[in-house]
């Protein structure tokens, strides 16, 4: 135990630095994925015929083993942060895309008809009706992706993108359990904290009228 504390104290600044890198990698990837997948999901609800093709195509990415996906980046983009972010973003697309498509498409058709009949434009229906009602479904996708991306960012170390994976791989190389834990525990903590934060945010944003509604 003493050894654990001593090592932890000595490594603390490095853990913080790697954690910073890790958060950076994950956050940027999730943000880019949102920026791509949410609008795409919305657009797909208007083109239902191509929607299945697009979603199936995107889900193929999900079948590539994550380690291999990082590897595939090397011939095209080399190593470092940029290819890592691209790989993580690709992985993050599907849950957000799918939830946006299902959430927006699942808004009761009667509400859209009522809105149109009262003189809402397409944009107003999207902003005032569809997005508020679908938001918690979309948020669930984002939450899933956030958790997934934070754990997957650990592998980014193999293409020299930094992050907490650096510590874990070093621990493995040295067969040193303490070092492995120094990398692994922060990853788990990050996942838990981010998950709780997003849950809380969603609860805060959900209007009172929908809390009941979504439960039914």
């Amino acid at each position: 135990m003493d050894q654990f504390w001593n090592t932890l104290q000595a490594d603390w600044p490095m853990i913080l630095q790697k954690m910073g890198e890790h958060i950076n990698l994950s956050l940027i990837s999730v943000l880019i994925a949102c920026l791509i997948a949410v609008p795409t999901g919305i657009i797909l609800t208007a083109y239902k015929r191509v929607a299945n093709t697009v979603i199936t195509t995107v889900s193929v990415i999900q079948t590539i083993p994550s380690l291999a996906l990082f590897g595939f980046m090397i011939p095209f983009l080399g190593i470092g942060t940029k290819p890592a972010i691209i790989a993580l973003t690709l992985y993050a697309l599907l849950p957000i895309l799918q939830n946006t498509y299902v959430g927006i498409g699942g808004v009761n058709q009667a509400l859209i008809e009522a809105g149109t009949g009262m003189g809402m434009t397409r944009w107003q229906i999207l902003w005032m009706v569809q997005l508020p009602i679908a938001r918690s479904v979309i948020m669930a996708g984002v939450r899933l992706v956030a958790v997934q991306t934070i754990s997957m960012a650990t592998i980014a170390t193999y293409i020299a993108a930094g992050g907490l994976g650096d510590i874990i791989t070093r621990g493995i190389a040295m067969i040193n359990t303490v070092t492995i834990m120094e990398g692994a525990i922060p990853v788990s903590l990050l996942v838990i904290v981010v998950n709780l934060l997003l849950l809380g945010l969603n609860k805060l944003l959900t209007p009172k009228g929908l809390r009941q509604y979504t439960r039914n």
């Binding site: 009522a114 003189g119 508020p132």
Partner: peptide
Amino acid sequence: VELRRNIGYVIQQIGLFPHMT
């Protein structure tokens, strides 16, 4: 859009927006 805003419209499934008061 203008036309619809100037004509009242009530539908069968009520169509009240659940997230609005």
